[in-house]
């Protein structure tokens, strides 16, 4: 099986300047009852987007028409807490391809990478400049080039390079599937097992 290849993205962005956004906020537990991977975008940030009567909370950024795009720019320590991969599914299903933050929780980062959602970790200074630029001009574009590992703010040309595990980068660029790779090692795994006993 293969996953979508990750292409260079240029897009406007949605700012979420809140620290420690946990996966319970990204997708509350009561929406984890589905048995397929689809449709979680509908409940992304459910309790920040809607009140208890399901009315839209107009102040929340996803409800502001002036913000759109496939890049989410969030505060430090994004994705902490529960290991629920549904959080990565929800963000991706909503239409985001990239999440930018100055720090990611480990499990979220792995889950995102396993679903073609690119976590881009930047310095706190660069994050602050991105957030300021987006908030000043909602049409500000950001380019994320995975091949060269550079994120660029279109308006000023300011850029920063970001890290990614070379193996994961190859997988994303080529749409390789981890499980196909692991299955190709089955013989070796069986050997490992018999050598231990």
């Amino acid at each position: 099986m293969s996953i979508d290849k990750f292409q260079t993205i240029t897009s406007t962005a949605v700012p979420l300047p809140i620290e420690n956004v946990d996966t319970d906020q990204i997708i509350p537990a009561r929406f984890l009852k589905a048995t397929t991977r689809e449709g979680f975008g509908e409940n992304l940030f459910r309790d920040w987007r809607f009140d208890k009567s399901n009315n839209i909370k107009p102040d929340f950024v996803l409800n502001k028409d002036s913000y759109s795009g496939s890049i989410l720019v969030a505060g430090k320590n994004f994705g902490s807490g529960s290991s629920r991969e549904h959080a990565a599914w929800a963000i991706h299903d909503y239409g985001f391809k990239v999440v930018v933050s100055s720090f990611f929780a480990d499990i979220f980062k792995g889950n995102a990478l396993n679903n073609g959602l690119l976590p881009v970790q930047v310095s706190e200074g660069f994050l602050a400049s991105l957030l300021a630029a987006i908030e000043a001009d909602h049409s500000t574009g950001i380019t994320v080039d995975l091949e060269s590992q550079v994120i660029t703010l279109s308006s000023t040309g300011a850029s920063e390079s970001f890290d990614i595990n070379p193996y994961k980068k190859e997988c994303l660029l080529n749409g390789y599937d981890d499980i196909d790779f692991l299955l190709s090692l089955k013989g070796k795994i069986a050997q490992f097992e018999s050598a231990r006993t």
Binding site: R37, A88, I107, N114, L182, L183, I189
Partner: peptide, 22 residues
């Protein structure tokens, strides 16, 4: 350690998980 569902699938399929060493 805790893992995501894609990793659960890896373990079901091969009893192994791809994991960077902390």
């Amino acid at each position: 350690f805790g893992i995501g569902t894609s990793e659960v699938e890896m373990v079901l399929a091969t009893q192994c998980v791809l994991q960077p060493k902390p």
